[in-house]
Design a protein around this nucleic acid. Structure first.
Lengths: 217, 217
DNA sequence: ATGCTAAACGGACTGCGGTCCGATTCTTAT
DNA sequence: ATAAGAATCGGACCGCAGTCCGTTTAGCAT
């Protein structure tokens, strides 16, 4: 049932897990949820978490690698559920619907997801350079890219998928909603218009010549 | 000649500047440039900068507000020059060319800019929540929005401009180039295709009804 | 020159994410 | 039961961005 190693729940690479490690992991997750309940995701610090869980700070980082890793672990259940829906679930999000409709649905669902988990989703975006290399992010990217190809978009699907992904960045989404009071519906509608334009117009192909000599990777 | 208060060079709101303040500002900027030369933008820390300039740490923060503010100040000359070109310069970047061509040129120039200043441009993007409220960012946003409107794009130009801006985020641009070895030309070409699609197709207008009767602007 | 005041100064301090490594505890073989 | 060994534990430690507030100094009026 495990779809993609979102973060595998706990251990980073190993197989077996020592009993004390398992106990501490549960302690930590429980404490983290409590803290978020009380102080919000932004109010959760690694020190506080360690103290609340009654473990050392080193233990926290060994478990989750980083603050962002912890947040991802906390989101892993809902994230897995989301992945399941857009990969295997019913149309229009899942397979069966035309690519464009799936794209539209994907954006709408992702927007709803980000808005639901707000602070958490934002905190799960590590501020590090490898933010886009996290398994879930590359999965979304690949999914969008696949749908673009299926929809007949010829124009550099990898980069187009990157542009579309950037539109769904939690940071910007939350900024639009919280600071500029943009409604979720308006966000979804704008996304629909964006992907529709992209799919309907084959990338401004008639530029002038498109003399792409080799056309290599 | 000052176009837009990018960061006004130094003082945040006041008018007159005391002589010691001016002297320290110059000292700091000089030291910052030296440090970046030696250690790269990522190697510049506020402590080191204060020490190198021979001033206290408080002075650094009073001058620039934050690390990102310092980076913006360091970029302000080239930023002002860029602003001057896309607002008042010759076509196709400046006024005179058709909106679509200006959009294409804007993206290409911005990509080149980000790639040229690399680390610095990235560091100037404060990690804070108000990242998008910085004067330069809202100017770019407004510029894109204006061009979209001029090009006849009806679909929520504000949000479309946000999506397009996100595509030009230094973080992602540098990620594509440095990690995935995407060439600058490919980035610019992808941008061209993106905006061309947007402008050519009026936002998936025939969705199902889209009876937007008035179509105000 | 001198005194006054508002502004600038500077460095100790805080809170944070993240690391390190000696001490501890679980597991397994005997 | 026990000893060896590996994995885990935990908190002192680091470097960093950013803040605070007592001290100094520039600019001006006299």
């Amino acid at each position: 049932m495990s779809l993609i190693p979102i973060r595998s729940g706990s251990q980073l690479g190993g197989e077996a897990e020592r009993s004390d490690a398992a106990r501490n992991r549960e302690l930590l997750l429980k404490a983290a949820r409590e803290l978020i309940e009380e102080c919000g995701a932004d109010g959760l610090t690694m020190d506080r978490l360690a103290e609340r869980a009654g473990v050392g700070k080193g233990t926290v980082f060994r478990r989750f690698g980083s603050r962002a890793g912890l947040m991802m672990t906390l989101l892993s259940d809902s994230e897995a559920e989301f992945q399941g829906r857009f990969m295997f679930g019913p149309p229009p999000l899942g397979p069966g619907a035309p690519p464009l409709e799936r794209l539209v649905a994907f954006g709408a669902e992702r927007i709803a997801y980000v808005l639901e988990y707000g602070e958490l989703a934002r905190a799960a975006d590590s501020s590090a350079y490898n933010r886009f290399d996290v398994p879930a992010a590359v999965l979304w990217h690949r999914h969008i890219e696949m749908l673009l190809r299926a929809a007949g978009v010829t124009a550099d699907p990898w980069l187009m998928a990157m542009s579309l992904s950037s539109t769904l960045d939690p940071e910007r989404l939350l900024y639009a909603v919280r600071v500029h009071h943009v409604s979720p519906e308006r966000l979804a509608e704008s996304w629909r218009e964006l992907v529709t334009s992209l799919v309907r117009c084959p990338g401004g192909g008639d530029h002038q010549a498109e003399e792409r000599p080799g056309g290599g990777g």
